[in-house]
Amino acid sequence: MTTNDTREITVTVDGRRETGVVSDRTLLVHWLRDALDKRGPKIGCDTGNCGACTVRWNGTLVKSCMVLAVQVDGDEIETAASLAEEDGTLSRLQQCFADHHALQCGYCTSGMLMTAADLLASGEEITEHSVRRALKGHVCRCTGYHNIVKAIRAAAGQEVPPPHGSEPREAEVR
């Protein structure tokens, strides 16, 4: 059939240098998932709307379903797998997502976290409105977004109400 040009690329993914052979048409999201078993970027649509595949490319937030793998040759990619502390402890943002029940099935979560982290790092003012606006490029079909917004505001240090029915509980876990 038609051309299936391939080429070798070298990309630093989540801090590790990775080399691979990709076809020209391979989307970054497919290379990350299929070749590197990176499970942060997910595919939820085919039109760039859902944001589940969001990663950082050289520090810039992008949707990896609209980038070719060959385009990132020599560059740096960060996925949601890079967000936790090195010892596996959840980051403050991740912990806020857990505390405020900001995820249900978890499929959109990695993308949401990437954007939330980008927003928090941007120095932009964090308000209900600004958070909702920042999440525009994402679709979540489980949570109704309310708790995601809360979690991000909490991560920014804002007072938000605790989840329903969540009086003292830490002491009871053990």
Binding site: K38, R39, G40, T79, A80, A81, L83, A84, G88, L90, Q94, F97, A98, D99, H101, L103, G106, T109, S110, L113, P162, P163, H164, G165, S166, E167, R169, E172, V173
Partner: peptide, 15 residues
Amino acid sequence: KAMPRKEDARLLKAQ
């Protein structure tokens, strides 16, 4: 009680 979810850690860590 609003116990924290057991599912969350793996999902939050893209695992």
